[in-house]
């Protein structure tokens, strides 16, 4: 079955990872049966945002059949500067999404620049994937609040509430048609609950792999398969929903 991993990272130095050539990651993903990986920076989440966006763009050059690059921006630079970087990434670097990590990047969802950034991302056709599940800056309902302010932007909860906040994540997804969930982190019991209550057309597969975690694909695939018996739903989670999400985001763009 085709597999799209909607949550992977280019290794950096943030967690003491060993440097790995992107060729190795590409080979590893192929060997693990991944057909496409949404690919984020690691180091850019804590320093040198623009430089790390450049590094990511360079890393995936010639490999866009596998890697869908997501840029990041620093909300603390202010809405204008962050949006300029976002536009540069979309137009010059051909980035296809935005990754934000409020915990590592140390910003509240209510920071004045966040909603303008999200709205602009929607206008550019970029979905926005958030780290979520971690108080005090990354709870699903905080992200859902921002999603409500930017209804034209597709927002992904990158960990579906992790585990403690699964209930919040489900409620955020049910209430907001522009909120999606990547099943990267929740336990089987939490996935059971998500599958029972959340909109099936907005569930995605992801591993957080590539960078700080490696060789997790089989484990995460087994976990999803242990919880989901419907082949149709597996097709949706493993690839169809991710493909559609990129289409929905693109169709929502006012300009590119």
């Amino acid at each position: 079955m085709k597999l799209i991993d909607t949550h992977t990272h280019l290794p950096g130095t943030l967690f003491g990872e060993s440097p790995r050539p992107v060729e190795d990651i590409h080979r590893q993903f192929e060997a693990e049966g991944i057909h496409q990986a949404w690919f984020f920076t690691t180091d850019g989440l804590i320093r040198d945002t623009a430089r790390n966006n450049d590094i990511l763009a360079q890393a995936v050059r010639g490999r866009t059949d596998m890697f869908v690059p997501f840029c990041t921006v620093d909300p603390h630079t202010g809405a204008d500067a962050a949006i300029r970087e976002l536009e540069r990434c979309a137009r010059t670097l051909s980035m296809r999404g935005l990754k934000l990590h409020p915990w590592l990047q140390a910003f509240s969802l209510t920071h004045l620049s966040v909603v303008p950034i999200l709205k602009r991302a929607g206008e550019l056709g970029l979905p926005v994937l958030f780290h979520d599940g971690s108080p005090p800056y990354s709870t699903p309902l905080q992200i859902a609040w921002a999603a409500e302010q930017a209804p034209g932007t597709q927002i992904v909860l990158g960990h579906a509430g992790l585990d403690d906040l699964t209930d919040e994540a489900i409620r955020a997804c049910v209430r907001n048609p522009n909120v999606w969930m990547t099943l990267c982190g929740p336990s089987c019991g939490a996935i059971d609950e998500i599958v029972r209550r959340a909109p099936p057309e907005r569930l995605l597969f992801g591993t957080d792999g590539g960078g700080f975690f490696q060789n997790l694909t089989a484990w995460y695939v087994a976990k999803i398969r242990a919880c989901v018996s419907s082949r149709r739903l597996l097709e949706m989670i493993f690839h169809e929903n991710a493909e559609r999400l990129l289409e929905v985001a693109r169709e929502g763009a006012r300009e590119k």
Binding site: S187, C188, G189, A190, W219, A222, K223, A226
Partner: peptide, 12 residues
């Protein structure tokens, strides 16, 4: 962690 997780997965 049954039933939060699955025995076979945890053993594997």
């Amino acid at each position: 962690a049954y039933p939060r997780s699955r025995h076979e997965m945890e053993v594997t």
